[in-house]
Each structure stands twice: as C-alpha cells, then as structure tokens.
C-alpha cells in the first residue's frame, strides 16, 4: 500500500508547483509552449514566461482565441500548455475545446487553476463546479485533479509525455502535501491511501485530504473506511473501483457538482460492473456564492467532520 506522508503535513501551493514544473519542462523540451489569458501571475505561468519569454504567449483576456491558438500550436508539433481560471478554461471556450482540441484529438494541455468553491469571496461567477462535467463529457479528453503540490508536479510531467488532450484541474489555496517525493503517479491509476472493510471513500483533488481525515474520524467511532484517491477522473481506474466496491458501500467526495463529476463516473462504472450503494458528496445542484473557502466548505458539507457525519448516517441505512 503506498503510504502517504506522516503528519504533520506541510502546506504547499499547486499553482507554484505548476509554474516550477513548467520551467523544468521548458528546459527539457524546446517544443513546450505556454499560453495564458491575463492571469499569468495567478496561474504562475509567469515563471515560464520569465524563463522562456520567446515560448510564452500572454493572449490577453481572450480565452476562446487562446484555445484556438493552442490547437494551432499542437498541429504544428508543439506541446502547448494553456492556463487560466477553471471557469474560463473550460466554459468560456467550451466549443473551441470541443471542436479544435478534443474532436481532432490535438495535443493540448489545459491546466486550470482556481477550481471549486475554495476560490471563495469572488463568488459563483469564478467558482468552477461543472468543469469536470464539461471536460469529462468530451471524447478523448483525459481529466486529472491532483490532490497536492507533489502530485501536481508529477501529473504535469506525465501529461507532457502523453499524446492527446488533457484537462488538469488545480485550485487556488495551498493545501497539505500528503505525497512523498517517490510517490508513483500514473495517469489512469487510483491509489488506496487507506484500507477498510466497512465503506470505501473515493475522492479526488482537494477532497482527498478531508476524505483521509474523515476516515480517521470514522475509525475512532468504529467504522473502518478505505480511502481510494482517484487523481484521474477520466479514464477512471475500474480495477481500483471494483476493489473499493468490495465494501458494498461507496462514498464519493469531490469539490465539484455531484452531477457529472467523479461521483457520476464511479456510479456509471459500478452500475455495470458491480452495482454498489453509493452516496455522492460534492456541491449539490446549485451555484456557489461569496464567502471564505472555510465557510463554504463548511456550508456545503465538504469538511472532514461533515463528511464523516454523513457517512455515519449512510452506514445506518
């Protein structure tokens, strides 16, 4: 079982990890180009811009154009990484992603930051809760939501090596680093962070840390919960899901709408392979709102205690 780091976990930013990894990639591969849409300070692509100004393109506040230009780079043998906030990287430019990137299976890496409700005070316009739904629905698109800064680095290095369109979903706030440097990230592979026989929690992205913590709370109350971290939402790791479903109860946790995200992907697959009772935890069928990240996590039930509480109730029924 791949051990996660012992506590105390240190916080680190996924965005900083992304920026640094881009610089590394830039040094290794002259075909890597980076595009941003007037948010290079927020997405940290500015690090690449500083190191390789001739391969960095700030496209202004014009996400649709940026997306099309990235496709043009891809068909010309470059490996474009394009970044902006998750709402604008998947929604504003959805048709460009669909027609110019996904359908022709072009090698564009869409790396978005500021996903989920943890964007906080900016409110619903900036809180992407449907981005996974949009990207997952596109044929050929790989969708990855790393849990921490280490996994972000490994995922970025991995997607640069694979051919094809990818959506990587990052968040704004620094988060606990749970993976050590020799963690073996593989696209399409889930990782069990904890074994358990009563219930399996399947989590992705920022919700993996609270999922682990919820499992610890449950353990202290006599409920033995496994935690399966699923960094790749598409293609999903069916073998890992089958193993998780042995507990006969599954709970999915994601910082995303319960519609068409990880929860749906799990349900779709288990419904066929091994129908299992499942509870989806995420944001309900609603938009986000202004508030601090902590307040919103609490209000929407995305904290470890709230997750544990809901699982306890689920176990009784």
């Amino acid at each position: 079982m791949p051990a996660i780091l012992p506590k105390p976990w240190q916080n680190a930013g996924m965005r900083e990890a992304y920026g640094k990894t881009l610089v590394k990639l830039g040094a290794e591969n002259p075909n890597v180009v980076v595009l941003d849409a007037d948010l290079s300070g927020s997405t940290q692509t500015k690090m690449f811009g500083k190191a390789y100004p001739e391969r960095f393109f700030n496209m202004g506040i014009a996400e649709q154009n940026m997306t099309g230009v990235a496709a043009g780079f891809a068909v010309s043998g470059k490996i474009p990484f394009m970044s902006t906030f998750a709402v604008f990287a998947t929604g504003r430019n959805y048709d460009q992603v669909r027609q110019s990137i996904a359908y022709p299976e072009n090698n564009v890496k869409i790396v978005a930051t500021h996903s989920g409700v943890s964007v906080g005070p900016d409110g619903a316009t900036h809180q992407a809760l449907e981005d996974v739904a949009l990207m997952r629905g596109l044929p050929y698109m790989t969708v990855i939501a790393p849990a921490d800064a280490v996994e972000t680095e490994k995922a970025i290095l991995a997607v640069a090596k694979m051919h094809g369109p990818v959506y990587v979903r990052l968040t704004r706030s620094p988060s606990p680093v749970i993976f050590g440097p020799d963690y073996d990230f593989k696209i399409g592979k889930g990782v069990f962070l904890r074994e358990g026989k009563d219930v399996s929690i399947v989590s992705t992205g920022t919700m993996t840390v609270p999922a682990v913590q919820a499992a610890e709370i449950l353990a202290s109350q006599g409920i033995d919960a496994a935690v399966l971290h699923m960094p790749t939402i598409k293609p999903i790791d069916v073998d890992a899901l089958l193993k998780a479903s042995e507990t006969r109860k599954i709970v999915t946790v994601e910082e995303h709408s319960v519609i068409n995200g990880l929860g749906s992907a799990v349900a779709e697959n288990l419904a066929y392979y091994n129908p299992t009772r499942q509870m989806r935890i995420g944001t309900e069928d609603r938009f986000g709102e202004s508030g601090s990240a902590e307040e919103l996590y609490d209000k929407y039930g995305l904290t470890a205690p709230k997750i544990a509480e809901r699982i306890k109730v689920f176990m009784k029924h």
């Binding site: 316009t125 202004s290 508030g291 919103l296």
Partner: peptide, 8 residues
C-alpha cells in the same frame, strides 16, 4: 457569506 453584495 450570506451577503447580497456578491464578489461579482
């Protein structure tokens, strides 16, 4: 949280 004066 709870305001009518949303961030946008």
């Amino acid at each position: 949280l709870g305001t009518r004066l949303q961030g946008h």
